[in-house]
Amino acid sequence: MAAATMLAAAMLFVWWLTPSEPALAHWAAAIELLVIGILCVALRDVIPDALSIALGNGAMLAGYGLIWTGLRRFDGRPPRTQRALIAPFLFVALCQLPFFAESTAHRVILISLMIAGLNLLAIAQLRRGRLVSRPRLALLTLLTAVLAFNLARIPTVTAQVDRQDRVALFSDPAMAGFGLLALAILIFICFAMVLMVRERREMHFRSAAQRDELTGLLNRRGFMESAMGEGVAGGTMAVMLLDLDHFKLINDRFGHGAGDRVLSIFARVLRENLRHGDIVGRIGGEEFAAVLPGALLSDARLAAERVQLGLREAMTSMRFGDAGEAIQCTVSIGLAVTTLSKGEPSASHGMRLQALIAEADTVLYRAKSQGRNRIEIAPAGPVALGA
């Protein structure tokens, strides 16, 4: 029990260190209640039955319920704490009835079913989550083991009850292994929860390092990493390089605040006029790029035209400077399309992507030199890998 108590204290310490993660508050409370519940049941011969049976088992049920509510908070859903507390309050209420309080078998069967039900809710929430990771799968496996253990107790309930109508799980030395197993599972559950939080925070920081702060789009590093990963799947791929025309004049005339506003507007235009699965990034000051997986040349051309029209429409309602002057901001676009083989090594895909971007950059320069506000397309054919 000392180890379980230290484990509960450790979860509270983790929550204190990471107050920004609300799920940890639920999980810390869950571990505290589970430890209290186990302690009460283990001390049945020492403390009154009202504490060891009703409150002890009620605390364990509340602990399992809070694991579920914590998972909901972790996934950004309402916790439904009141629903999670229905089972413990119902069990405590039933313990006040003589026919239920005097039957250990009935109590074991009911609490086993209740714990199994609460674990089913937690398992369903884990499966519903969009992020699949090793800590999440580990927690899913552990809760499934708890579910199976509690369901297995029901057909063997008579073996767990001694002649004094008491649960022999904690009093019989031969059953001590079950207590150690329960403690081990509890420790692993704590580790899985903490690792889930750590993993998500690492992903958040990694994502922030790959995002452009002003526009919310991928930065150059994030764009290249995402594009490389998309290229491994093979198939047709279009690359679009976009450069805002005369952007320096906007900064010089209206200030960098106006320029930042134009960049943010253009980022919104890109999000609205390209597909959800397209990879879009800001790779320079006023230069943007997009990878369109599976897009043919005609698809990429139509997408580029939508972007040009979207920018023009977005800028008509924008006013800058003290006089509220409109800005005629346009964009030049270079397009290049190729087909990547699925069986090629990833290094070859990377070289082809780099070559495709270079081709798109070449025709973008041509669009700028021939009057801007144009769409230029690289010649169709194999992409040269270069020296």
Score class of each variant (00 low, 15 high):
26 H>W: 02
90 L>I: 11
304 A>H: 12
378 A>M: 13
60 M>A: 11
53 I>L: 07
51 L>Y: 11
59 A>T: 05
269 V>F: 08
371 G>S: 07
204 H>I: 13
299 D>H: 13
177 G>Q: 05
347 A>C: 06
323 A>C: 10
338 T>S: 12
282 R>V: 01
73 R>C: 14
358 A>F: 00
246 H>S: 03
275 R>Y: 15
188 F>K: 00
93 A>V: 09
5 T>P: 01
220 R>F: 06
208 A>M: 12
80 R>C: 13
300 A>E: 10
215 T>K: 06
165 D>E: 11
210 Q>T: 03
110 L>E: 15
306 R>G: 08
38 I>K: 08
109 I>E: 14
69 T>H: 08
35 V>T: 05
42 A>K: 15
328 Q>I: 03
381 G>R: 05
183 L>I: 08
78 P>G: 09
22 P>Y: 08
199 E>M: 01
193 M>C: 06
285 G>Y: 04
308 Q>R: 14
16 W>H: 05
165 D>P: 00
127 R>F: 15
268 R>C: 08
224 M>Y: 14
80 R>D: 13
257 G>E: 13
309 L>S: 10
13 F>K: 03
123 I>T: 01
309 L>H: 08
121 L>F: 09
280 V>S: 05
382 P>T: 02
154 I>V: 13
221 R>N: 02
97 L>Y: 06
62 A>G: 12
285 G>Q: 01
375 I>N: 02
18 T>M: 11
111 I>Y: 05
67 I>H: 03
336 A>P: 04
19 P>R: 07
178 F>W: 11
60 M>N: 06
